[in-house]
C-alpha cells in the first residue's frame, strides 16, 4: 500500500450532499480518530458505493490521502450495514444521536479504539433489539463515551470535599456528585439517579440499567453538564416522545 493511501475500518457518522453528485463524509476510525472524506459520484444511482456511505455503516474503506483535511474514498466494503435499525423511528433516532455525540466529543484525529468499539457495539445493539433505544440505554452509552474520553464523573464521594456520605447533588463544574455541604453550584440528584449512574458505569452496555423518568432526566443533566464543563461540548438532548412503540406499518396496496 502506498503512503498516499490508507485502508481502515470506519463508521459513517455523517454524510452530507456536496456538489452535483458527491458526498462529504465524517468517518470515525479506530486508529485515526475522526476523518473527513469525499466520495465522488456517491449519489448517482449506479455509484459503486451504493448505500454503503450512509450513516451508521461499519465499513472497511480505502482512502486516498490528500494534503488537506478531506481525503478521497476510493473503495468501501461493508462490515455491518445495520439495516434493521433503519426500519424504526426510535432506533434510527438513537443511532443518529449516538453518532452525533461521538462527532461532538471526538472531533480530532487522535486515535481512540475504545470510542470506535463502543460506537460499533451501540449500533450493533440498536440493530439487534429496539429495547436499546430506550433513554436509559442511550444515557448509559453517553456515560461510557465520557469515560472513554477521560471525563469520568466522580460518583463514589463528593467531588469537592471527598465526603462519602450525604451525597445529594451533582455539579458539572466540580466533576461529579457533591454532598449537602458543597452543593452550592449543584442541582439535586436523587438516590435513584445516582444509583443509575453508578450501575450504568459498572454494567456492560447491553445490560444498561433502568430508572424512572425523573431520575433519567437528572442523569441526562449530569452527563450533559460534565460534557459542557470538561469537554466544552453541548450534547443534543435525548428525544423522549413516542418510545417503545411498534414501528409504523407501510403497506403495499393491492
Amino acid at each position: 500500500m502506498s503512503r498516499r493511501s490508507l485502508r481502515t475500518e470506519a463508521i459513517v457518522l455523517r454524510s452530507i450532499r456536496y456538489g452535483e453528485a458527491d458526498r462529504i463524509l465524517h468517518l470515525y476510525t479506530p486508529e485515526h480518530g475522526r476523518v473527513g472524506a469525499i466520495a465522488k459520484g456517491a449519489r448517482r444511482t449506479r455509484s459503486r458505493f451504493g448505500a454503503r456511505l450512509e450513516p451508521f455503516f461499519h465499513l472497511s474503506v480505502n482512502l486516498h490521502l490528500s494534503r488537506g483535511d478531506l481525503h478521497t474514498v476510493t473503495s468501501a466494503d461493508t462490515l455491518a450495514a445495520h439495516g434493521r435499525l433503519r426500519e424504526r423511528a426510535d432506533t434510527l433516532d438513537a443511532a443518529a444521536r449516538a453518532c452525533d455525540a461521538v462527532a461532538r466529543l471526538f472531533e480530532t484525529d487522535d486515535p481512540s479504539p475504545a470510542v470506535f468499539h463502543l460506537l460499533a457495539n451501540e449500533l450493533r445493539l440498536l440493530d439487534g433489539d429496539p429495547v436499546h433505544a430506550r433513554p436509559a440505554a442511550q444515557l448509559a452509552f453517553r456515560l461510557k463515551l465520557l469515560v472513554a474520553g477521560g471525563f469520568t464523573p466522580q460518583l463514589a464521594s463528593c467531588a469537592s470535599c471527598g465526603e462519602s456520605d450525604h451525597l445529594s447533588g451533582f455539579s458539572g463544574a466540580a466533576g461529579g456528585v457533591v454532598c449537602t455541604a458543597c452543593e452550592a453550584s449543584a442541582f439535586p440528584l436523587s438516590e435513584e439517579a445516582h444509583g443509575f449512574l453508578v450501575a450504568a458505569l459498572g454494567r456492560p452496555l447491553a445490560e444498561a440499567p433502568d430508572a424512572g423518568d425523573r431520575a433519567l432526566r437528572q442523569a441526562e443533566r449530569a452527563i450533559a453538564e460534565t460534557a459542557e464543563h470538561h469537554a466544552h461540548v453541548h450534547l443534543r438532548p435525548l428525544a423522549r416522545v413516542r418510545r417503545h412503540q411498534s414501528g409504523p406499518t407501510i403497506r403495499v396496496p393491492g
Binding site: 454524510s15 448505500a51 450512509e54 450513516p55 451508521f56 433503519r86 426500519e87 424504526r88 423511528a89 434510527l92 433516532d93 443518529a96 413516542r242 412503540q245 414501528g247 409504523p248 406499518t249 407501510i250
Partner: peptide, 14 residues
C-alpha cells in the same frame, strides 16, 4: 432513501 429521508417517512407514517 437516505437516513434523514427514511426518518421523515417513518415519522409521517406513524
Amino acid at each position: 432513501p437516505t437516513t434523514t429521508g427514511e426518518a421523515t417517512a417513518l415519522h409521517i407514517a406513524e
